[in-house]
Computed example of a mutant assay.
Amino acid sequence: MKKIKFAAGRVEEFACEVGKSQSFLWDTASPGLGLRVTSKGAKSYIFQGKLDGATIRLTIGDPRTWDIAKAQAEARRLKVLLDNGQDPRKVREDALAAERDARAMQEAAVVAEQEKQLRESVTLGRVWPEYIADRIATREAGWSEHHIAAHRKIIQDGGQPRKRSPALTKAGPLWSLSSLRLIDLTNERVEAWAREEAKTRPSSARLAWRLLKAFMNWCASHKTYSSIVTSNLILPQYNQTQPIV
């Protein structure tokens, strides 16, 4: 076992013996610290010691990223663990596991916060245009220009100028729900809306009901909005004379 006091030049010059797959050089200043070099020239600092009579060996790191002083300090730390009867490999595994758990918790907290912000901000009016664009992009069967126009008109704001008439536009049946968050689209809220709309424009209300039901089904299968929409929202069949059946 070749031992020397590690120095930058000696570490740099150390090479694998001819005919061997790897060679080792050991530091006299830090017991257990070694330098391993392979026949292909790859070098790494290692630590070697005994635990319960068995030899254990751990890789510390590449000399290009670990200077000698840092490698010696790590070897001393590992030697202390051995002297205390601890297996450095198990300590390292536990530390890595703790880091993974902490990172996973941080990532979960970020996701939870993002979902919370999404729940608190995403409204029907914000998602409706995205829904239309998605259905057009996927060439949904039956989505003619007339059908697309119906979707846009059903949620339009009122009081806007018309192109071919001096009369201002009338708010669509879904406009009153457009500022509502998706998470607030409960059965009770939607049923109350349907009853009010049916009093003045039952035909338009029936169409809006049908389109809203299709929209909610789309949300329920969407990778982002499925976690926001009310999971138990079930819109029953609409009846013109008796909206909720």
Rank of each mutant, 00 (worst) to 15 (best):
E99G: 00
Q106G: 05
Q117T: 05
E99P: 00
G125W: 01
Q117R: 08
R126Y: 10
V111Q: 06
D101L: 15
E120M: 11
R126W: 09
R119K: 15
Q114L: 09
Q114T: 05
T123S: 01
E120T: 07
E115V: 14
D94P: 12
G125T: 09
E115P: 12
K116E: 04
L124T: 01
E115A: 12
E107T: 10
L96P: 01
L96A: 09
R103C: 10
Q117N: 13
Q106H: 09
G125Y: 01
A112M: 10
A102C: 04
V122S: 02
D94A: 15
L96K: 12
Q117W: 06
R103V: 13
Q117I: 06
L96Q: 06
A97D: 03
Q114H: 06
D101I: 15
L118R: 15
K116G: 03
V111E: 06
E99A: 09
Q106Y: 10
K116I: 10
R100Q: 05
R126S: 06
K116D: 03
V111W: 05
L124C: 00
E115T: 15
L118G: 03
E113R: 05
K116N: 07
V122W: 04
A104Q: 14
E115K: 13
E115G: 03
Q117V: 03
A97T: 02
R103P: 08
R103S: 07
E120N: 15
A102E: 05
Q106N: 11
R100N: 04
A104V: 08
A112T: 10
M105P: 01
S121Q: 03
A98H: 02
R100F: 08
E107A: 13
E120H: 12
K116F: 06
R103Q: 15
A97M: 03
L124R: 00
A95D: 12
M105E: 09
M105G: 05
A95T: 10
A102Y: 03
E115Q: 14
Q106K: 12
V122R: 01
L118W: 09
R126N: 03
A95L: 11
E120A: 15
D101Y: 14
T123L: 00
E113G: 00
S121P: 02
E107R: 14
M105R: 15
A112L: 10
R119M: 14
E120F: 08
A109F: 06
L118A: 07
A108E: 08
D94Y: 09
Q114W: 09
M105Y: 06
R119I: 15
M105W: 04
V122M: 02
R126Q: 11
M105V: 10
L118S: 06
A108D: 05
R100P: 00
D94E: 14
V110C: 04
D101T: 15
Q106L: 13
S121W: 01
D101G: 07
A98Q: 04
V111Y: 00
Q117F: 09
A112G: 06
G125M: 02
V110N: 03
M105K: 14
L96G: 03
A112I: 11
R126L: 10
R126K: 14
E115D: 11
V110T: 06
S121Y: 01
A95F: 10
R103D: 06
